[in-house]
Nucleic acid binder design. Structure first.
Lengths: 341, 341
DNA sequence: CTGAAAGCGCTTACAG
DNA sequence: CTGAAAGCGCTTACAG
């Protein structure tokens, strides 16, 4: 039936050499140890037979699988596909493949998946699921598994991370609103246990601090998540607590869309009554109504950097932990305008 | 440094039994061959040592990796993330993992990636890159590799596929426009070498055929791709060739968005001058202006079915080739209306 | 029920 | 430059 795939021995037999010689020929790095003439013959036979090295066997002996585990919280969230693309392209360029797993916030599930991945002998892990204080990451480090976090970071300094510079992002957002004349600015913050939630909140406060506004003119409301529903609920409650607010900076475009929902429900208009700034610049944010002013994050670049970093970490396991921050940019569209005077 | 991971032998030594006994204990299916008392002791030692089976080794002997290769044309296209999610969830439920690779239309690149995947000993392949006549799929079948295509199908009947029922989808779209009173309906078709392009076009023509319209009242324009840019160029040219058109059915929401661009550029309005029907119902299509009437495809369900099918194919390699078609539904929003009379 | 052995397909010192 | 051998960590007939 399934005519078994040819092995080193099959190629060796066909070429009239020992299978260890074939092995040396198949690996470009050891090829020069073999005479050119023999190498040529072996290569010809290998390709004639359709020889394809069995990675399970080489992984077993070299302890390198050339596979990276990529763990995402929700591939369905539009920020992750470009990150994943950047990762995958970056890895493939160096002969690595990615096993991709989607896991919720449940720690048990995360551990289960990571153990499965480690059993698979992945050479490293790229985690997009990091919490600021993440026991899963501690565990990986305790086992000397190379780990890089993307998009979010763990703040214990045990793993390198590749993130957007959220302090800059929030400053861009706040300064834009200030320039438009807003004097009562609010921030809907994401969960405090995620670095994105925490750092963006700090960035918001720092930007206010640096302005001529006093603390009473800034308001922070913590939302339980980054979804559209959370955004709607958050703005509704925020406006109840701080009715003088004329502009809101969010931590996610989805939250901003939820704000649109809330504004509509209240019979108000964006940007006339409330200006809204998103975060991420997901696809099609130029097409929604009103087109969303937002902080564009370089997701693809973040993924590409993460691929580069994990490979670097694998190469030099003792090199120092790095924080890579990519600069975001402000994209001004129509959801922000001067406040009603 | 890296205190080596424990192996079967380590657990055996700690438990005072032979490592083959440990092996039997670790596998739930052979566990009952071992006395309950020994099994308990072994399990305790295994967990104490943090034993984790090395999949490279078991793959080498069983020739099963419990890994599936998933090949996507563009993870950044919003239809694929939910498909991938469905696949990954479905696989994981059965202990399988997914290696995900993104490849362009280039056949060389596809072959390269698939060979790499096969070298990795994947148990099967889920391909979202199928063309109607796909040499890559032929090659896989020639090597007895289980293959399932998703979203698109190969028409040679060599591989099972999981797709949306496009004939139904197009009928839904056309009948909706007919009911609104349209009498000059056009279709922007996708590439003929993709099943989605071909079948949707056939479905469009069949729906027109079944109506009281005559062939001169229907117009098909083939676009070179499913992008926003292609959609814009297509509608511009279509309107030049068939200016009486009052409604257009597309094969993709992206193309529909491109139609919006074209309509705006011409100084026309949607839906007053031209009604537009999308295809897929990507996220946020309810938020764009005007909210898009479209054919909703059950992407997540398609992914879940594909996972089920590939596992079934692996279990019973000689079972027959299946076409699984999920029913789409019409989502009416505001991009369609009665034509100007 | 448990152990001893062979073997999966490779890589890589070690000889010659 | 090439071959012979050991060994990676498992699974699974085969004995007992």
């Amino acid at each position: 039936m399934t005519n078994k795939n040819p092995t080193l021995s099959d190629v060796a037999r066909a070429s009239g050499v020992h299978f260890s010689t074939v092995s040396r020929v198949m690996n470009p790095e050891t090829r020069q140890k073999v005479s050119a003439e023999v190498a040529k013959r072996v290569l010809a036979e290998a390709s004639r037979l359709g020889y394809r090295p069995n990675r399970a066997a080489s992984t077993l002996v070299t302890r390198k699988s050339r596979i990276i585990g990529v763990v995402l919280p929700d591939i369905t969230n539009a920020v992750f596909p470009p990150i994943l693309l950047g990762i995958e392209e970056g890895l493939r360029k160096h002969g690595y493949l990615a096993i991709v797993a989607n896991v919720g916030a449940d720690e048990e599930e995360q551990l289960f998946v990571i153990n499965r991945l480690l059993g698979q002998q992945v050479d490293g892990l790229i985690l997009a699921t990091a919490r600021r204080d993440d026991p899963v990451i501690k565990l990986c480090k305790a086992q000397n598994v190379p780990v890089v976090t993307v998009n979010r970071s763990d703040e214990n300094g045990v793993a390198s991370c590749v993130v957007s510079d959220d302090v800059v992002g929030m400053r861009l957002a706040v300064n834009h609103l200030l320039a438009l004349g807003h004097r009562h600015i609010a921030h809907i913050a994401g969960p405090e246990n995620l670095s994105t939630g925490h750092v963006r909140r700090m960035g918001f406060l720092a930007a206010i601090e640096a302005s001529e506004l006093d603390a009473s003119q800034a308001f922070v409301f913590e939302s339980s998540g980054y979804s559209r529903e959370c955004g709607k609920a958050a703005l509704l409650e925020l406006l109840r607590q701080s009715p003088q607010t004329t502009a809101v900076v969010t931590g996610s475009d989805l939250v901003a869309i939820g704000c649109y929902d809330a504004i509509r429900e209240l019979g108000l208009n964006c940007p006339q009554d409330i200006s809204v700034v998103g975060h991420n610049d997901m696809p099609y944010m130029d097409l929604i109504r009103p087109p969303l002013t937002t902080i564009r994050i370089r997701h693809h670049g973040i993924g590409a950097e993460a691929a580069r970093l994990i490979l670097q970490t694998i190469d030099a396991p003792d090199s120092s932990v790095l924080d890579v921050r990519l600069k975001p940019e402000l994209v001004v569209r129509e959801s922000t305008a001067a406040p009603r005077s």
